[in-house]
């Protein structure tokens, strides 16, 4: 008997984890998942592998049990991914991972047109076909057909309009780990400048065009592999809009200078964590410039979502860069030294 805890994991990961255990010849498997879609996919997997399926709800989680002699080599015939509420590139990465597992008919639920366009591109670039439909604001994209799937996502478009730097740079840098040709939509010149710096830094080609105040920036070409390891062994924790007393103009200027000086130093922090009034750095153009440079150099930038919401500036940060208290506590625990400003 094998127990799998797949809570907190997006499909197709729970299905892939379960499939591996079936392949090892296990006859009784329980899988703990936290969403309905995962249970439906596991039911399909059970049918396909010739195993008995049962499911019971435990609080907000589900415990799925698969019993019997499973066919190890079973391919996942059909799979549904629920990516509603998830911003690109997440739905595309989920879909790519599923297609790499050999899923024959993949259904992806998303809630925005950019995601539909990106999924369609993913299908076409891999020699497959995509059909989409819409109902009550939820788009269903069905990807079928033969065609070899590549590890890298060939092309994708991300919408970073309304967000302030360094967010577009952080989005682009994260996406480029999985994407070959990236198109970023931004609405500020400073974002274009910073994306150009990112392109130079990564050895990517850079092209920009403008229409109705929206810049479309394309980063293409081979480029360098992005190094995942943290750049420094210390972290900075910013909780105010200035250093020390902030009711006079000195504190704000000291913070600007501090963050600028970080861009000029060799011993960079691994992460900068912004909480409470610290998240207001997203409103300051000078600090945006410095943070974009730090992001390009590999410093992880963490913004407290609750705080952005409290000050009414959530729109300045893309959802995938917003963190909660769990992420922040985990991030801080990684470093031997956290400096609070």
């Amino acid at each position: 008997m094998t127990n799998i805890d797949a809570r907190g994991k997006n499909c197709p990961i729970p299905v892939i984890m379960t499939k591996k255990v079936i392949a090892e010849g296990e006859k009784e498997i329980t899988v703990l998942v936290d969403n309905k879609t995962a249970t439906l996919n596991l039911e399909k997997l059970a049918q396909n592998s010739g195993m008995a399926y049962s499911c019971k709800a435990i609080g907000s989680d589900f415990e799925v049990t698969l019993m019997g002699e499973g066919k190890a080599e079973a391919v996942i015939e059909a799979l549904t991914l629920d990516a509603v509420g998830k911003a690109c590139p997440t739905p595309v990465i989920m879909a790519k991972n599923a297609l790499l597992e050999g899923v024959k008919e993949l259904t992806v639920l998303v809630d925005n047109k950019i995601a539909v366009a990106n999924l369609t591109k993913l299908a076409e670039n891999n020699g497959k076909t995509a059909v989409s439909s819409e109902k009550d604001g939820v788009f269903t994209v069905v990807i079928t057909g033969e065609g070899k799937v590549s590890e890298m996502i060939p092309a994708i478009t991300l919408d970073a309009t309304k967000t302030n730097c360094p967010i577009p740079v952080v989005m682009a840098k994260n996406a480029l780990k999985e994407v070959k040709e990236l198109t970023m939509l931004v609405d500020m010149e400073i974002a274009v400048t910073n994306l150009k710096k990112l392109a130079n830094n990564l050895g990517k080609t850079f092209e920009v065009s403008e229409e109705n105040g929206i810049y479309s920036v394309v980063l293409g070409g081979e480029g360098k592999v992005i190094d995942e390891k943290p750049v420094g062994d210390w972290a900075v924790f910013v909780t105010e809009k200035g250093i020390g007393v902030t009711d006079n103009p000195l504190g704000g200027n000291l913070l600007k200078m501090y963050i600028y000086t970080l861009t000029q130093t060799e011993n960079l922090p691994g992460a900068m964590i912004f909480m409470n009034e610290g998240v207001k750095v997203l409103e300051n153009e000078e600090i945006q410039l410095s943070l974009a440079e730090l992001a390009i150099k590999g410093v992880k930038l963490v913004f407290c979502g609750t705080c952005l919401n409290f000050y009414g500036i959530s729109h300045l940060c893309a959802p995938q860069n917003v963190s909660n208290m769990y992420d922040i506590v985990e991030e801080m625990a990684k470093y031997n030294k956290v400096v609070k400003l």
Binding site: E189, K256, M257, N284, L289
Partner: peptide
Amino acid sequence: STHGAIAARRVLDKSGMIRTIP
């Protein structure tokens, strides 16, 4: 003087082009 620097920063409002540095 620090006050001169802060006053200057205040009148130079083209934020994206001017940076406050040590």
